[in-house]
Amino acid sequence: MPAIPSVLITGASSGIGATYAERFARRGHDLVLVARDRARLEALATRLRQESGVTVDILQADLTKSGDLAAVEARLRDDQRIGILVNNAGTAIGGSFIEQGTDDVARLVALNTTALLRLASAIAPRLAKAGEGAIVNIGSVVGLAPEFGMTVYGATKAFVLFLSQGLSLELGPKGVYVQAVLPATTRTEIWERAGADVNTLSNVMEVDDLVDAALVGFDRREPVTIPPLPDAGQWDALQAARQAMLPNYGNQYPAERYRTVV
């Protein structure tokens, strides 16, 4: 792997993905940009080549289609220059669970979980063998908050967080850094696709601020980065409370509270 590894970014044609591309290009990383919109990818690639002098390849791909996904997986497995994966591609749909169509939900799950998992699986063995590299998975604070009422979307982002934490435990000792980034409401096109007007929402974070904060966490090698959270101690307390329960999961018999006759 080169001293400055290439970065493959999914969902790179706009929003968070495009901003990650700009920031990594400024750092001197060559890029592989993945998205469905070839015209926007080409425009971004041309600009970044001119501004930063880096090499930028584009892969037009719909990650919900098996053939397109396989092509990106192959690039991650075979291209020894790629040392960082930014799993950013994702989508949301509007409406409540009972209002959402089954096919729409299936596409949401395929993009937000299956594609992310398969791409991480494609690159992880090579990075572990090399003893270096990074996987950045873009989740959401919604994955911690069923109260926000985005049930399926939130479930996919809970998956992203759990997967990232598990991979961090597995791959960290092998030299591979895994980061979960959990944005809150951010000004991206995902809102329009979900049928919402982001301009009617409050406390909306700008994409530049979100990515810059996420990269501070990346440089610090945080396993979980939550840009809008002002008190890191709250996350630490949540983790401590969760870990305090672990010894109790191995009991042979049900807890006394389930064996008391009312």
Rank of each mutant, 00 (worst) to 15 (best):
I123V: 14
A110N: 13
G139H: 03
A120H: 05
N87E: 08
F97C: 06
A124D: 05
A128I: 01
S121G: 14
N112D: 10
R107F: 00
A130D: 14
V136D: 08
I93K: 10
G139M: 06
P125K: 00
L117S: 10
G94W: 04
S96Q: 15
V86M: 04
R118I: 07
K129E: 15
N112S: 01
L127V: 13
G101V: 09
L117R: 05
P125H: 11
A89Q: 07
G139W: 00
L117I: 08
L116G: 01
E132N: 14
N88E: 08
G95T: 11
G139T: 05
A110I: 04
G133A: 11
G101H: 12
E147D: 11
D103W: 02
R107Y: 03
A110E: 15
R107L: 15
V109G: 03
I98K: 09
D104P: 01
A134W: 09
V142L: 06
A145R: 15
T91H: 04
A128K: 01
N112Q: 03
L111V: 13
A89L: 08
A89S: 07
L144D: 09
V141G: 00
I135P: 08
G133E: 10
R126H: 03
G94L: 04
L85Q: 11
T102L: 14
E99W: 01
A106F: 05
L108K: 13
D103F: 02
T114N: 11
V141D: 00
G101L: 09
I123E: 10
G131T: 10
S96C: 09
G94P: 07
G101K: 15
A128E: 06
P125G: 06
V136S: 06
A92Q: 11
I93P: 00
S140W: 04
